[in-house]
Every structure is written in structure tokens, then in C-alpha cells.
Simulated scan of single mutants.
Amino acid sequence: MELKSWYAEEKPWIIAGPCSAETEDQMMETVEGLVKQGFSTIRAGVWKPRTRPNSFEGVGEKAFPWIKQAKEVFKVKFAIEVASARHVELALQNDIDILWVGARTTVNPFNVQEIADALKGVKDKPVLVKNPVNPDLNLWIGALERIHQAGIQKIGAIHRGFSTYQESIYRNIPLWQIPLDLKSRYPELLLICDPSHIAGKRDLLFEIAQKAMNLRYDGLIIESHRSPDEAWSDAAQQLTPANLKLMLDKLQIRDLTIASAKLQNKLDQIRDEIDETDKELLEVLARRFELVKKVGNYKKEKNVAIFQLERWNAILKNRPEWGEKLQLNPDFVKTLYQSVHDESIRIQTDIYNE
């Protein structure tokens, strides 16, 4: 997939607006508030795929006259989610400026291909693809490839976090390394963060948005409503236009490169130390897995099951505690040891299969 840089305006690109288009008054007042705060690209949900039935699933085609009116009055661009060929057809008929493919659609290659087929012949509309619900980089790349193969040149990715069964402060855990891996493979790909759907609540929005800026994301797509507490969907994660502007004004936008040779030399020196520390870390891991092999051979000899629940529960309890004493994030330590445990199970399984 060969991509070209296409967004030439000042970054970060901010796409802001309500989770859902609810009523004509709500749309017009929210857009007016956003325009007064300097925003010019508006998002709004026309169709809302919900996890469970009987939730508000958007007003559908009824929203298009409101969007048209807002575009004419306030001279803004509009972005909406599309989940089927029919959605694409209606969006194009109603001159929607930007389309995005939602997380629940990205997981299904058949649905993505249907959307891609409907987009063939479209030249100037940006199409953004949200990460799939579950952490699967190849699935995300596959969706982007299908849209690209349809002839779309203005293509981008939206990082909105990933579902997890684990307890978390986030609505969707960020797993920052996945979008960074995507960006490293496709440096020209426009990468946008969706703090609203990662956070799920207002008090985490700034933290996530700043992290995205620290990582040099190209923009943010974020939810804003005239009266967030009265929103028909996702009320807890929306801000008023004025509060959104206040939050974004506090963001520090990082430089992409280091201009000073002295600063670059210092950075290189620290990175050399990191490289040496990583080598030591890998040597320690190698020693640990050698011990795992000894354990596996002993269990096999004594006909003992590989998985020992009490031992695993003890590790889950005390390793984060040990890490915290070393000023390490306990959640990180827990995640680290889950990966170590998975590899330990694999090693011992291979021993049992010999």
C-alpha cells in the first residue's frame, strides 16, 4: 500500500462535534458554538451502531437536511460514519465531506469491501478507518488496504482504543503501540486519535489528547455537544464547545525534530544507554525462560499439569507490588507478566509435546 501525504493544512487537524445528530436545534446550536470557538470540521453520528438493541441508534437520513443547513450557514465541512454501501450512497448524495469507517465495521472484511466497492470512482473525499474493536493490527491494515484499492487517495486511520475484558480506567484501552506500529509501517498515513472513545469520560480527555500530541499524531476527532449531560448517546465523554476549546488550548504541540545538534547528541547518548539496558533486559528474560524449561521438564517427569492456578495468582499479586516499590506502573507490570506467562505456557506445552 503506497500512500502519499495529503493533508496540507495546519496540524493538529481537529474534527469536533456531537456523538449523534439528535434534533435540528441541537445540531445548529452545537455547530454554531463550535464555529465560534474556531472549529471548521464537524463530526456527527447519523447512524449509531450500538452494542445492544433498544439503545439510541441515530436518526438516520432525517439528519441530512440539518447537516446541509449547517454547512450552508456556517461554511463548515462534515464527517460522518458509514457502515454499509447504502450509507456511502446517501452520504455522497448529501455532499458529506469526510467519511469514516467505524470500529465495529472494520472487524468485518465483507462489510469493508462493500463500502470500498461503493467508494470506487470517488476522488476527493477523505476516508478515515477506525481501528477494529479488538487489538488486531493486520485487520486494521486490511481495511485500509481495501479502501485504498478502491482508488481512495485521501486515506487516514483513527485510533479509538480497543475493547478488553480486563478492568480499566478507560472505556477502550489505548494500546498505543498498535497505532505506532501502523504509523511506522506507513509513515505517510494520516493518524488521528479519538480521545472520546478511549476515555469514556471527560476527566481523561486531556491526558489522552496530550499523549497523542506527544506521539505526534496528526489530529484529534473529539465529541462536543451544546449540553453534554443531555446528550442522547455517550453523554459522559462529551464537552461543550467552549470547554473543548479551553482543553485544546492547554495542549502542548511537540516539535517533530530536534533542531539543536547539542540536544540531539544528548538524546543519542541516552538512547545508547537504553540500548545497553535493553540487552541486559533480554539476557534476564532468556535466563528466566531457561528456568521455565527446567520447570516444564520437571512437571512432565512428575506428570503434573502445566497450568498451576495458585502459582499464577501469586505472581499476579506480588509482581505488580514489587514493581510499584521500584516506581513502575502496576498495570504495566501486570500486562508484562501476562505476556511472560503466555510465553511460559507455550514453552512448557512444546516440552510436553516432545
Rank of each mutant, 00 (worst) to 15 (best):
I96V: 15
L215C: 07
N94D: 03
L263P: 00
E301N: 10
P126A: 09
R50W: 01
N303Q: 15
I98E: 03
F162C: 08
D278C: 11
E276P: 00
I306K: 05
N329M: 07
V82F: 05
G60F: 06
Q113A: 05
G142R: 09
S344E: 14
A150G: 15
E223V: 11
Y170F: 15
D181M: 15
N214G: 06
K245A: 13
E72M: 09
H148G: 06
K68T: 13
I178L: 13
I152G: 02
Y7H: 12
Q149W: 01
M28T: 02
S224A: 15
K211D: 07
N108I: 12
F289V: 10
N318A: 07
D268N: 11
Q37N: 14
S20Y: 01
G58P: 04
D25K: 14
L34V: 06
R311G: 09
M247V: 13
E273P: 00
W322V: 14
R146S: 15
N329Q: 12
Q37H: 09
E354G: 12
L182Y: 03
L189M: 12
K262W: 04
S260C: 10
G121L: 07
K279L: 06
Q166C: 00
V73Y: 02
W6S: 07
N313E: 13
I347E: 08
D229E: 15
V333H: 07
V133G: 03
K201H: 13
L139N: 14
R52K: 15
I147K: 05
R86V: 14
T240W: 05
L239F: 02
E24I: 04
Q149F: 08
I258V: 14
I115T: 08
L263M: 11
I80P: 02
Q237N: 10
A116N: 09
N54C: 08
E22V: 11
E188R: 10
T240R: 04
V107Q: 12
E89W: 01
Q93A: 14
Q153Y: 01
F78H: 11
